[in-house]
Amino acid sequence: MTWADYWALIATLNGEATHTNCQRLAEELGRRPEPDIIGFAERQAEALYRLDQEKFGTLPVVDLTARYGSPFPQSSDVFLYTRCAVVAAGQAVWESVFFDVDKFAPYTSSERDGEWLLYVPDKAYELATGKKWGRTTRYCSESYSNRDGWPNLRS
């Protein structure tokens, strides 16, 4: 799957990875050939991996504060779901955050959870084949897996 094809499918989310939007995307993708589903999963994992950077992951959650008003840090799960929300917002938003970290910050809001996007490839595969997919992708989308993006985590 090309990046253009991937972003065209992401555009069907209308900027938000809601359960309904992601279900609709999974159904659309599930009508495509299996290589398209695999290609979508690969592009998505890479898009999330590229966002897995310290400059984004160390931003606080914008609408929460910790005890005594200090910034509330993103957990690894929140950071993953935030990256999903950025991807769901579309290609223009995804590209813009690399040049301006302040454009990433609003997606850390508890109101912008993109978790449902993670399940689109698995659901599409199941719809297309009737089987569960125990897949792996070239890139790991889990938080802190991009070692180049987290130079201070190196051992």
Rank of each mutant, 00 (worst) to 15 (best):
P151W: 00
V93C: 06
L117T: 00
R50T: 01
A4L: 12
A11G: 12
A8C: 08
K123W: 12
F79T: 03
S109M: 01
Y144V: 04
G39P: 07
L117G: 00
E42F: 12
M1W: 11
L64V: 08
S145R: 14
F98T: 09
A47Y: 01
P60G: 00
I10N: 05
L153H: 12
A4T: 15
R138S: 10
L80F: 13
L64M: 14
S75Q: 07
A66R: 07
N21W: 05
G149L: 09
T12C: 10
A66K: 06
A45P: 00
S155E: 13
D113H: 12
V87D: 01
T18M: 06
R112T: 00
W7Q: 11
G69F: 05
Y6V: 04
S110T: 15
T65N: 11
P71Q: 02
S109G: 02
L80K: 12
I10Y: 07
M1D: 06
R138G: 08
D122Y: 11
I38F: 11
Y81K: 10
D77C: 09
R83Y: 09
L48D: 00
R154W: 06
L127F: 14
P35T: 02
Y49S: 01
E95Y: 05
N152D: 14
T137Q: 14
L13Q: 00
P35F: 02
A17Q: 00
G134F: 11
D100F: 07
F72D: 09
A4Y: 08
R138F: 11
G30C: 11
Q74T: 05
Y125V: 02
Y119E: 10
G57L: 10
P151L: 01
P151H: 02
V97D: 02
G130D: 09
R24E: 12
E126Y: 12
L117Y: 00
E28F: 08
S76T: 14
Q53W: 05
S141F: 15
V86W: 02
M1V: 14
E42A: 13
L153D: 11
E28N: 09
D100E: 15
F98V: 10
Y107M: 04
D100R: 12
T18E: 07
R50A: 03
P71C: 03
A8H: 13
R112V: 02
T20L: 15
A88L: 01
Y119R: 15
R31Q: 15
P151Q: 01
V101M: 04
C22D: 02
A41P: 00
F104T: 03
L29V: 11
W133S: 05
G90E: 05
E126F: 10
N146P: 04
S143M: 08
Y125F: 15
E95C: 08
A41V: 03
R24P: 04
E126D: 10
T65D: 10
D122L: 13
G15Y: 01
P71Y: 02
E46P: 01
R147F: 06
W94Q: 00
A26T: 10
A45F: 03
E46D: 09
M1Q: 10
G130K: 11
T136V: 13
T18K: 10
N21V: 03
A8V: 08
L29W: 06
P106A: 07
G69D: 04
V97F: 08
L118C: 10
